[in-house]
Design a protein around this nucleic acid. Sequence first.
DNA 1: GCAAGCCTCCTCCTTTCGGAGGAGGGCCAA
DNA 2: TTGGCCCTCCTCCGAAAGGAGGAGGCTTGC
Lengths: 222, 222
Amino acid sequence: MATNPGYRFVIADDHPLFRGALRQTLEGLFDGVVIAEAGSLEAVSKILEEGDEIDLVLLDLNMPGVRGYSGLMYLRAQFPTVPVVVVSANEDPGTIRRCMEFGAAGFVPKSLGTDTIREALSTVMAGDLWTPADVDLASMPADETAKLVQRLSTLTPQQVRVLMMLSEGLLNKQIAYELGVSEATVKAHVSAILQKLGVESRTQAVIAASKIEVGHWQSVGV
Amino acid sequence: MATNPGYRFVIADDHPLFRGALRQTLEGLFDGVVIAEAGSLEAVSKILEEGDEIDLVLLDLNMPGVRGYSGLMYLRAQFPTVPVVVVSANEDPGTIRRCMEFGAAGFVPKSLGTDTIREALSTVMAGDLWTPADVDLASMPADETAKLVQRLSTLTPQQVRVLMMLSEGLLNKQIAYELGVSEATVKAHVSAILQKLGVESRTQAVIAASKIEVGHWQSVGV
DNA sequence: GCAAGCCTCCTCCTTTCGGAGGAGGGCCAA
DNA sequence: TTGGCCCTCCTCCGAAAGGAGGAGGCTTGC
């Protein structure tokens, strides 16, 4: 129906087949849309860093090398101006809620019809948030991890990068090398992270981060 | 049918209703069986430490405060002589295989009928291993974590306890206090753990442990 | 312009980690 | 009984971690 010229989307999903299906859907919904595909978080970052003024990222929660919400957290921290819509097979209210807390602009279950997807993306492109109608975000508040999510959201972009490197078990020295800064800077970031997360060691910070990243699936699994 | 007098079982599951159901099943299958129930890993440990010569532990993989296989690993390390049968709603071959690698004496899907349960427990009580017939343990070998599982299985009982405390973010000093030993001893254990796991820092050890404990559900979820 | 936030880097200091190497006692199986 | 394994503990040492406190340069927004 309507034409939305020149939108630039990025589809981030590790499954090529699904990327193709989503691409077709989007091309049918938005005239003149330009779509880039990314199979990993690194690929998404590279695209966003090229400064092509991406209008929207459609992100699968389950990307290789990215456990749970860390991919979303990373994108929101590194590229705060680019809206991210999470696309997931999971439509559990807790998952949706957490995605929104991490700054997602919308949550689109993979089961949705094209009409609803169109509505969702239009809403997001207009600058509003969108979630499935039957989800009550106000309910089911403050579990143990809610506070932690909030704390994580106060981390600066660079701090997010450092935290993720901590979660890979890197030394300060190694992180400094990777980021091209001095070890003193890394130590400053780490200290800030510890304070913001309310923990007392890098190991505890890693544990806290891992709880958020995978904590949800535990309660679903088994 | 047959009478198996005086068996002592422990049912470890955080769900009271399921404990009751399993208790009834067992009481119908084995005459004169004595059954203790435990809703947490601590409760199981307490029962086993009391020296009542428990013949079998029926362990749910999903216990509170115990993520994934750590409960099984802990029991096998602390009480090597007590056979543990894993009871789980999950009957994925990978899960079953990993349970057996961690030293489970059997794996009983919750969906099983009483006849099959009886067969399974009798097999285990006779000293053999038991898994569902349709599972081919020989297949699906060596994924990335298989080596790690093997390495974890070489940890001594005390090292397992230390590793779990590392995974809680405790300092050596705190672990020493908890275990009632000197910090030097803890450091010796930690060094041994790092060597056995093939890592270079406590943080990396915690990361490795967390991969095993929850790594499997990730590949199932979403 | 100016404040605020972020990133960067510095010094000085204490604590914690982790390795190397040794050593004694307890327990169990060959 | 004699290894072997485990747990315990020790010293000496260098490296890593983390706190306290400060500081300059950089954008962004008021």
